[in-house]
């Protein structure tokens, strides 16, 4: 009976296109009811020893965004008319790249006559992680170049249980990579992870957990100085420093995640954000989870690293729950906390 009804009244599928460009990645992804139809992305890669500046990053995004958008539509085999909603990153992130991406999203939404939806970038990571891993109500560790937060859902908010009090863990890794001139291709964190595998000597670094929060700026200053002294005198190798830095900062992250789980009686951990594809972090988190009888959920680089589909997925949830963003309210914001968003799509 049901199949006959479906034949006569096919359930309409909702298609959302998502634009992401809050940092050095620019991505456009298309989601149709939980299915990723396309998710192309480009990364602005700077020479070793250099970070990415807002205006240069925005220039990169401007140069490629329309090509990436075209790819997303072609790969999905869709026409603009098939799209139901245009989602874009409202914040947090770098101002100039955010504006660039928002302008294209606003323009296509008007050209195609579709509603617009501004999405919190952190919520995008969480919802994409939940979609891909099927974790139902996990404690979330969100770790990237710009953010470090331990999050759990309660009463219509993703609440921040612990976070960095200065720089993000990924920023600490990226800046250490610059000091010892590690390549930024495909990402500094990936190259640190590979080098760390050959490290043999553990160099003791400050361990800075402050209650539920963490601090990384002191560790960075310390290891910068250690690198200058110890590498020139041959006391340790660059690989040893990569290894020691990873072990120290990941142990801190596992500690605060475990404490948040204890507070919430949670039996699931989900790791999201660019640093989340680091296999050593996943391994250490896995050991902690096993000891507690909990389950670890993680994704690979396609969905951990910033991408358009994650904005489409969070946008899909928001759109289904009745939200849209009027054009005049579609301004971007560099600061936009995870817990500012009312989660209208979960019980």
């Amino acid at each position: 009976m049901q199949s006959i009804l479906c034949f006569f009244f096919p359930a309409t599928m909702t298609v959302v296109i998502g634009f992401e460009g809050s940092a050095n990645k620019i991505g456009v992804g298309i989601i149709r009811d939980g299915e990723v139809l396309s998710n192309p992305r480009r990364t602005y890669i700077t020479p070793p020893g250099q970070g990415f500046m807002p205006s240069d990053t925005a220039r990169h995004h401007r140069a490629v965004i329309l090509t990436v958008l075209k790819e997303a539509l072609e790969e999905a085999g869709l026409k603009p008319a098939d799209i139901d909603c245009v989602a874009y990153t409202k914040g947090p992130g770098m101002g100039a790249p955010l504006v660039t991406v928002a302008i294209v999203a606003r323009t296509v939404a008007q050209l195609w006559g579709k509603p617009l939806l501004g999405v919190n970038h952190c919520i995008g990571h969480i919802e994409m992680g939940r979609l891909i891993t099927k974790a139902s109500n996990p404690t979330v560790l969100y770790v990237s170049g710009g953010n470090t937060q331990v999050i759990a859902y309660s009463e219509r908010r993703y609440r921040i249980f612990g976070e960095t009090i200065d720089i993000a863990v990924g920023n600490c890794l990226d800046r250490f990579a610059r000091v010892i001139k590690i390549s930024n291709d495909p990402s500094p964190g990936y190259n640190i992870e590979q080098m760390a595998k050959t490290g043999t000597q553990y160099v003791e670094l400050p361990y800075t957990v402050k209650g539920m929060d963490v601090s990384f700026s002191g560790i960075l200053s310390y290891i910068e100085e250690a690198a200058n002294k110890m590498l020139s005198s041959g006391q340790c190798t660059a690989a040893d420093l990569c290894f020691s830095l990873q072990e120290t900062v990941f142990a801190m992250l596992v500690e605060i995640t475990e404490r948040a789980m204890a507070h919430c009686s949670s039996q699931e951990v989900l790791i999201v954000g660019g640093v989340g594809c680091n296999l050593r972090l996943q391994e250490m988190m896995g050991v902690m989870c096993e000891e507690r009888g909990a389950k670890l959920f993680a994704t690979d680089d396609r969905f951990c690293i910033d991408n358009g589909a994650m904005i489409a997925q969070a946008g899909w949830e928001m759109f289904q729950s009745g939200q849209v963003t009027e054009l005049e309210d579609s301004w971007i914001t560099q600061r936009y906390r995870t817990d500012e968003v009312e989660v209208t799509w979960r019980d």
Binding site: A58, R59, R62, I65, L66, L69, K70, P80, V99, T100, I103, V104, T107, V108, L111, W112
Partner: peptide, 14 residues
């Protein structure tokens, strides 16, 4: 820069 991007977007997707 932003104006150029809007016009390019209209040309490609309008």
């Amino acid at each position: 820069d932003h104006l150029s991007l809007v016009i390019e977007t209209m040309e490609m997707f309008g």
